[in-house]
Design a protein around this nucleic acid. Structure first.
Lengths: 222, 222, 222, 222
DNA sequence: CATGAATGAGGCTTCATTCAT
DNA sequence: AATGAATGAAGCCTCATTCAT
C-alpha cells in the first residue's frame, strides 16, 4: 500500500503549500480550520475564530475560499480521495493479484492495517469527514461518486478473485461489503474517536477484526 | 421483547399528548421539529421554520421549551431511553434465561429483529440521535449513563450466560461488543439511512447478519 | 403628625384590601410587585415573575391592572400621596401654628423624625419611587402636581411664619428649600438605601441633621 | 483644579477618537448612545435605535461593544473616573496645602465651582450615571472602588487639615461627608436635571451653597 | 373572578461576507 | 495579497398582553 497518504493532516497541507500555490497564511488557515472544526463541528465554528487561531484577518480567509463551505470542501475533498486512495485503480488491484498476499486473510490484514495507519495519522480529518457527511449534500455527492467509480469496482474485483479461489463464501458482493465495511469502520471509529484513551493492543485487535470477518465471510468452517 | 416501544415517533408523542399534559400545539411542535431536524440537522433548522411548519407562533415554542436545545433534548432523551429499552433490567435478562430462546443464535435473531422493528418505526428519531450525538456533550453524557448503567451490564450478563453454555468463544466481552455492535448498527444504518430505497429482503438480511456474527463469535466452527 | 401613614408597605395594601374592593389575589400581586420591583427595578421585573411570586396566573394581573405600567402607578401614586401627607393642607399648617413646637428647630426635628419613621416603614416603596421617577413621565407629572399644589404651599407657609418670628434668615423660600430638601432626603437615602447596614445612632444623626440645617438657615449665629 | 476634564461629553469622545483607535463610526455610536440613553434611560433605548441615530448598521455596534451593557459601561466608567478626577492623588491634596485657598471656605468655593463646571459640560453623562447607578451592580462596584480608594481618602485629608486649623467643627468625617455630599449633589441635580430651565444666578447660588455648608460645618458662629 | 396557553412584536446578538485601503 | 471595519440578514429568545375556557 502506498505510504504517501500517511499523515495527511499536516503532510497534506505542507505538500500543497509547496507544490501548489499556497501562501503560508493559507496553510495556517487550513490548519486552524481543521483543528477547530474537528473539535466543535462546522456549525459551531465561526470564520472569525478560524481567523484568530490562524493569526490572520477575517478577510484573508475569503480571499482564498469563496465561502465558508468552500473551505470545508477543500478540507474534506482530499480526505475522501486519500481515504479511498488504495482503491484507486491499478495499485490496489495490482497488489491483490501480484503482491505477496498468499490468501484473502493476508490481504485483509494488510488492508486493515494500512487503513488503520491512515486513520491514526489523520484523526481530525476523519472526524470531520464522518461528522459533516450527513449535513452537506455536495460532500455526499462527491463521496458517492468516488465510491461508485473507484471503491466499489475495486472491492468487487478483489472479492470476485478470492471467491474464484474458493476463499470466500458465495454471497452477493454487496452483502459482503455491507458486513465488512461496518466491521472495519466500527473498529476504527471505536479505536480513534469513541475510546481513544483506552489502552489498546492494536495489533491484537486488528487480528481479532480480521479473524471475525474471516469466520463470517470465509469458507473455512464450512 | 416488549412491543410497547415500537413506533415511538408518532406514538410516543401521541401518548404524551394524552397521558402527560401536552397541549395539541406542543404536539405539533414536536412533530414539526422531528421532521425538519431529521431532514436538515439541528443547526440548519431555525425555530421560526419549526413554528411555521407546526402552525404556531414562534413564541409558543419557547413557552414549552426554554431553549432550542431543550427542544432537541426533549426529542432525543426518550429515544435514548427507548432505544435501549430491551436492555432494561429484568425483562431483557429474563428473556434470556427463561424465555424461548434455545440458543444464542435464536436470541440474537430475536434481538436484532426487535431492534430492526424499532428502527423501522422511528427512522427520523434514530437519524437525529445519530447525527447530533457528536455535537452535544449533554446528550453524550446522557447516552453514556444509560450505556454504563443499563446496556453494558445487560449485555454482559447475556454473554456470560452463553459463554458458560459453551456457545460463545472465550474473548473479553468488550471485544465481543466492539465487533457485535457495529455489525448490528451498520446493518440498521445502511438499511434505513444510507440505502432506504434499495429493495431489501429484510428477513434474509437479518439472517445473514446473525449468521455473520455467529460465525465470528460462536464456537461452532472451531 | 399623623400616624396613619406609617408602614404603608403592608398597611396600605391591607387597608385597601378591606376598605376598597381588593381580592386576596390582588393583594398578593401588589406585595409581590413591590418586593421584586424594589429589588430589581421596573424594567428588570417581568409580569410572569410577579405572577409566580404572587402565586397567581399571569392573566390575573391583567384582570386587575390594564397594563404593567398601571400596576406600577398603582404602587407609586399612593406613595407620592402618603409621602407628602404631612403637607396636606390644614393638618400640617395647623400643627405649625397651634401645636407644641415652640420654635423652628423643634418643628424641624419633629418633621424629620416623622418622615424618618415613614421612610423606615416603607423602604421598598420609597426605593421604587426614587428609582422609577426618572423614567416615567406620568409619574413625574403626578409628583409635580402634588408638589405644586400641596407641598410647596405648605412649606411656604411654614417658612414665612418662622421668618416673621425672626427664626429664619431672609432668603427666597425656593433657595431655602433647595438647601433643605437635599439635606433631609440625602440623610434618608444614605440611611436606608445606601448604607442600611451601618450601625446608625439614628437619634444623634437626626439631631445632627437638624443642627446642620439650623446653622445654615437660621439666624442664630448672626 | 485641572481643566482638562471639562466637557467630557463631546471632548472625551473626540479625544478618544483621535488618540485611541476609535473609528468615526464608533464615535458616532457613542454620541448617539449617550444622547438617547440620557433622554430615555438604558432600558428604554434599543440598540437598533442607537444604530439608526448613529447612521450605522446595528451589527456595527456589536463589533465595538460585545454587549449592550458593555456599551453602557464604556460610557459610564470614564464618567466615574473623570467625575472624581479632582480627588485623584497629588493634585487635589496639593491644592489644599500649597495653593491659594486661604481657608476652607475658599477651598469649598473653588471645589464646588469646579464640579459645577464639570456637571454643566456633561449633563447627559451625569444624568446617565445617576439614573443607571441603581440598576447595574457592576457599575456600583466600579463606583465603590473609586470612592473607597480615591475620593474618601482625599476628602479625609482635607477635612483633617482644616480641622487642625480650627476651621471645621469636630465631628466624625463620615458625618460631615454625609451632610456635605447631598448638599453639593442636590444643588447640581436641581440646577441641571430638575430645574434646568429656571433662570439661575449661578454664582449667587454657589455662594449660598458654600455659605450654608460653612455655617453648618464651620466653627465660625460658635 | 381566575386561568394559562398562545401570541407576535421587538430585542439583542452572531456571523458569513464585502470592500475600501 | 492582506487587512479589518462595516454590513445586514437571520437567529434565538423575552415578554406584555389577549382570550377561550
Amino acid at each position: 500500500m502506498s505510504e504517501q497518504d500517511q499523515s495527511i493532516y499536516k503532510q497534506m497541507i505542507d505538500t500543497l503549500g509547496e507544490s501548489e500555490n499556497m501562501t503560508p497564511k493559507q496553510v495556517k488557515i487550513l490548519e486552524a480550520a481543521i483543528e477547530i472544526i474537528s473539535e466543535k463541528g462546522y456549525y459551531n465554528t465561526s470564520t472569525s475564530e478560524i481567523a484568530k487561531r490562524a493569526g490572520v484577518a477575517e478577510g484573508t480567509i475569503f480571499r482564498h475560499y469563496r465561502t465558508k463551505k468552500d473551505l470545508l470542501a477543500s478540507i474534506i475533498t482530499p480526505v475522501i480521495t486519500k481515504f479511498s486512495a488504495p482503491f484507486f485503480a491499478e495499485k490496489f488491484v495490482d497488489q491483490v493479484f501480484r503482491k505477496p498476499h498468499k490468501n484473502f486473510e493476508d490481504f485483509l490484514y494488510a488492508f486493515i492495517k494500512n487503513r488503520f495507519e491512515f486513520a491514526k495519522a489523520n484523526v481530525p480529518l476523519v472526524k470531520i469527514l464522518l461528522q459533516e457527511l450527513a449535513f452537506h449534500p455536495e460532500i455526499q455527492a462527491s463521496y458517492k461518486k468516488v465510491f461508485a467509480e473507484k471503491i466499489y469496482p475495486a472491492i468487487n474485483n478483489v472479492l470476485d478473485y478470492y471467491k474464484e479461489k474458493g476463499e470466500i463464501k458465495d454471497q452477493p458482493n454487496l452483502s459482503i461489503i455491507r458486513l465488512l465495511a461496518p466491521t472495519v469502520l466500527g473498529f476504527l471509529i471505536t479505536r480513534f474517536l469513541l475510546q481513544p484513551d483506552l489502552e489498546w493492543d492494536d495489533d491484537r485487535e486488528i487480528r481479532r477484526t480480521v479473524d471475525f470477518i474471516m469466520k463470517g465471510i470465509g469458507k473455512v468452517g464450512e
